[in-house]
Amino acid sequence: MEKHLDKKLEKLSDKMMQESGLEKPSFNFTNAVMERVEKVSANQITEYKPLISKQAWFVIAVALLPIAYIIVNNSSSSNSNWFDVIDFNSLFNYQFIDNMFSVTVSKTVLYTIVLFGLMLCVQIPILKNHFDKRFEV
């Protein structure tokens, strides 16, 4: 049944191809298309604006540096409570919140977090430069 249907479709397509013939584009087809492309690309140039400006990155860095300094300097023992640096008890007197901020962090985890943050700060400009070069025209 399918072979019969396939043969009918093949005969129909062959007949349509013979009747339609070859179509040829106009003499200046390529030039006309290229002119339109140039007009569109010239009209729609977008200027790159970063989502986070350089001033905002500077403010973020200035805000994170003291936090990293406090974390590194207050990790004298292997199980330091680095949430104890900030006194949250005066703001909240709930047992749940007291238990939540009594988390102990080992030096290894603390160093891992700091190094991860540093590596992230190093890799972002490198990747940005890579993608800027890749998308240059």
Rank of each mutant, 00 (worst) to 15 (best):
L22D: 13
E23D: 13
T46Y: 08
S20C: 12
G21C: 01
I45N: 02
T30K: 07
S20A: 13
A32Y: 01
L22F: 12
M34S: 05
P50E: 13
Q44F: 15
I52L: 14
L51C: 11
F27A: 05
Y48N: 08
R36G: 07
T30V: 12
V40Y: 15
W57N: 08
G21T: 01
F29Y: 14
F29H: 12
M34Y: 01
K49N: 09
P25C: 09
N31T: 08
S41N: 09
P25S: 10
N43H: 08
L51V: 15
I52T: 15
P50W: 04
I45C: 02
S20M: 14
Q55G: 12
Q55F: 15
E47M: 09
R36M: 07
P50T: 07
E38R: 04
N28E: 03
F29D: 00
K54T: 14
S20Y: 12
V33D: 01
N43P: 00
Y48M: 09
I52P: 02
S41T: 11
Q44M: 12
A56I: 15
K54Q: 14
S26E: 06
R36P: 03
E38P: 00
R36K: 11
K49R: 12
K49T: 15
M34T: 02
E23V: 15
S41C: 10
W57K: 09
L22C: 11
K54Y: 13
G21H: 02
I45D: 05
M34C: 05
G21L: 01
T46D: 12
N28I: 03
G21S: 02
I52F: 13
E35C: 05
L51D: 14
N31V: 06
N43L: 09
E23K: 11
F29W: 13
N31G: 06
K49F: 06
S41M: 11
A56W: 10
N43R: 10
L22Y: 10
K39Q: 02
T30A: 07
K49A: 07
K54V: 15
Y48V: 10
P25G: 10
N43A: 14
N31I: 04
S53Q: 02
N43V: 00
I52V: 15
E23W: 15
S20Q: 11
P25T: 05
N43C: 05
T30N: 04
P50C: 03
A56Y: 08
F29P: 00
M34Q: 06
Y48E: 10
Q44D: 13
I52R: 02
A42K: 03
V33P: 02
